[in-house]
Simulated assay, not measured.
Amino acid sequence: MTFDVHACERPDAATVLLSAGLGGAAGYWAPQLAALGARYRVITYDQRGTGRARAPQLPANYAISDMADEVLEILDATSTKTCHFVGHALGGLAGIDLALRHPDRVRSLTVVNGWAAADAHTRRCFEIRVALLKGAGVEAYVRAQPIFLYPATWLAANAERMVAEDAHALSGFQGSNNLLRRIEALLRFDATPHLHALRLPVLLSAARDDVLVPCSQSETLAVQLADATLDVVPYGGHGLNVTEPEAFNALLLGFLDRRFGST
């Protein structure tokens, strides 16, 4: 992995670790850095197989537990005893796994448009994305990706930005092997039998217009977890922290303030 530690002026600041979704890149969290960095030490990272950490290729049977172990390595490398873990989609799955196996390292968990086990709709979406990648190639996959991430009205209003994002995604593409291994990992993941063991505060953030992961997945998680706060917004899509950053930042900071104060 390649990670970045964004220092806070407060010497006693708690740490927030941000874990991206399938894209895996630290840069996904750019809209959150200023808001969080004013009060927290923030760690971002490129997940193994992505971004600055694309090589070597991921092995067969690569799993969400491997992704969680990589976070544990980062916590150790940065002398971070505990963190507030914030994960988007796949990143949230890594957070669930980490909190289940190493509860002493995670103070709170925020899962954005995540799930305990992928439902039939989400599986269909990933099957279509895999078919695009294998049948039409990388460029077709990249161009289709925003349709799964963002609301249609937002895409229409940000057409030029999408052209730039497509170019950036193509130039930094993680490679078909790594992408397929990561999709296989998220589709195999099923934390349902173990969710009762999670006793830490969990924030579940979801959007009703998410076309990739139905908000019902977050609603199901909320029922199964012992200490869950559920926030479902009408608009924002799968990447709601990008499309509605001010609202998401306020939600996250408010959750951390209510449960932990400034620590």
Rank of each mutant, 00 (worst) to 15 (best):
1 M>D: 06
5 V>T: 08
5 V>D: 00
10 R>K: 08
17 L>S: 01
20 A>D: 09
30 A>M: 09
36 L>R: 05
42 V>M: 07
46 D>H: 00
47 Q>C: 07
48 R>S: 14
53 A>L: 08
58 L>E: 08
59 P>A: 07
62 Y>M: 13
75 L>E: 05
80 T>E: 00
81 K>S: 10
81 K>A: 15
84 H>D: 09
88 H>N: 15
91 G>V: 00
93 L>M: 03
99 A>H: 00
109 L>M: 06
116 A>K: 06
118 A>C: 08
126 F>K: 01
129 R>D: 11
130 V>N: 08
130 V>S: 13
139 E>R: 15
142 V>T: 12
144 A>Q: 11
146 P>W: 01
146 P>E: 05
147 I>C: 02
149 L>P: 09
151 P>A: 10
153 T>I: 11
157 A>W: 06
160 E>T: 07
161 R>C: 04
163 V>P: 00
164 A>R: 15
164 A>V: 15
164 A>Q: 15
165 E>P: 00
169 A>P: 03
176 S>E: 13
176 S>T: 11
180 L>C: 03
183 I>D: 03
195 L>Y: 03
198 L>C: 10
199 R>K: 15
203 L>Y: 06
203 L>D: 04
205 S>P: 03
215 C>M: 04
215 C>Q: 06
215 C>Y: 12
216 S>C: 07
217 Q>C: 14
219 E>V: 10
222 A>W: 01
224 Q>E: 15
226 A>F: 07
226 A>V: 10
230 L>A: 12
233 V>Q: 12
236 G>Y: 01
238 H>W: 04
240 L>E: 00
241 N>K: 04
248 F>N: 07
254 G>K: 12
257 D>Q: 15
257 D>W: 13
258 R>D: 04
261 G>A: 11
261 G>R: 11
